[in-house]
Design a protein around this nucleic acid. Structure first.
Lengths: 139, 139
DNA sequence: TACAAAATTGTAATCATTACAAATAAAGAA
DNA sequence: TTCTTTATTTGTAATGATTACAATTTTGTA
């Protein structure tokens, strides 16, 4: 049985306000790496008093506390991800979609004295679907 | 003997204008992950007619052509890196410095059908020097 | 109910980056 | 060379995501 957004906030000692639960719940049910704007637009109908500032405040708080990750693979907007296990992001330069992949643990002797709080691996290139499309265009 | 900025531009079939050589040469002699602004300020005295727009144009061109890498580990500004071998970036949350580490090749069966053009690995945390400082403050 | 602290809101400001049109430089042809 | 075309650079205005901040609302507690 999956942990709820409320429980996850409690686990990090963050007061589960309506707005915080809504933002985190959206991320925990949409593993689409949304932007702050996307999250705001999705929640606004259900919470018409919601402010975009609150969405930004909440995302920053959750990121600082390590509840979620801020992804900077897209230079235009920050994206957010509620997955808790280290994983790899692949961003297709053709369609823009961001794919998740499990990541083998990277143990590096050279980093042993560094206190690592966050690991992010970004790959960029073309996904198989877009490769096929490109081939069709060129034939 | 090291390759010059001019030769590297030629290798990528990019016309080696004075401005492009200056930007790339700066990156090839300063592995400090500078921002566009830092590069502009460093080059401006020697090239007083240089425009910041040219620095941005050049950095974008070099990034698109794969001559350099754009690093987004710092959410505020893009940073740039002329290293050609895949490597890992560690950003200290205390002092802000970005350290380079060699990266073991990451071969992942799950990605075999993806056409990967760029791999970036970001680690965040506290470097040994800042860890010591933090301990001293707490004692 | 009253008070203090925390959270949310709306809006203005910030600031890195981009857009764009004008100016300049480079390349090619005759 | 001189003319013509193309590529590059420049200065400045615009963009747009994010932040700052003061006012308002909500929450917790006595």
């Amino acid at each position: 049985m999956k942990e709820s957004a409320q429980d996850r906030l409690r686990r990090y000692n963050i007061k589960p306000s309506v707005q915080r639960m809504a933002v985190l719940d959206y991320l925990m049910t949409h593993y689409t790496h949304p932007t702050a704007d996307t999250i705001f637009n999705a929640l606004y109908p259900a919470i018409p008093t919601l402010s975009k500032a609150t969405v930004y405040n909440t995302l920053n708080l959750l990121t600082e506390q390590g509840v979620i990750q801020m992804i900077t693979i897209d230079e235009k907007n920050a994206r957010f991800d509620a997955r808790e296990t280290p994983h790899l992001h692949f961003r297709c330069s053709a369609c823009g979609e961001i794919f998740d992949f499990d990541l083998p643990p990277l143990q590096m002797e050279a980093l042993k004295d560094y206190d690592i709080t966050d690991i992010q691996v970004y790959c960029k290139g073309v996904c198989p679907t877009c490769q096929k499309k490109e081939n069709n265009i060129n034939n």
